[in-house]
Simulated scan of single mutants.
Amino acid sequence: MTEKKDECGVKYTLDVLEDRWQPRIIFWLGFRPFTIEGLHQLLPELTDVALKEEITSLQNLRIVALRQVVLIRKYEFSPIKLV
Score class of each variant (00 low, 15 high):
30 G>K: 14
44 P>A: 09
68 Q>D: 03
28 W>V: 08
50 A>V: 03
61 L>C: 14
53 E>Y: 13
41 Q>W: 12
18 E>D: 09
11 K>T: 08
81 K>C: 07
1 M>L: 01
34 F>I: 00
68 Q>K: 15
11 K>D: 09
38 G>I: 00
76 E>D: 10
13 T>R: 14
63 I>R: 02
75 Y>Q: 02
10 V>D: 08
73 R>F: 02
47 T>M: 01
10 V>Q: 04
63 I>L: 08
59 Q>E: 15
50 A>E: 09
25 I>Q: 00
48 D>M: 03
6 D>W: 00
46 L>N: 04
18 E>I: 00
80 I>Q: 09
32 R>L: 01
79 P>S: 05
43 L>C: 13
36 I>R: 12
3 E>Y: 11
39 L>N: 04
42 L>Y: 01
18 E>G: 13
37 E>A: 05
71 L>S: 03
43 L>I: 06
80 I>T: 11
12 Y>T: 10
77 F>M: 08
54 E>R: 15
15 D>A: 03
66 L>N: 07
5 K>T: 07
27 F>S: 15
57 S>Y: 13
47 T>E: 10
65 A>V: 02
58 L>V: 05
45 E>M: 12
22 Q>S: 15
82 L>I: 07
20 R>F: 05
57 S>E: 00
70 V>S: 15
26 I>D: 02
17 L>K: 04
18 E>C: 10
64 V>L: 05
38 G>T: 00
53 E>S: 09
25 I>G: 15
2 T>E: 12
49 V>R: 04
57 S>F: 14
26 I>R: 13
42 L>S: 08
40 H>N: 15
26 I>W: 01
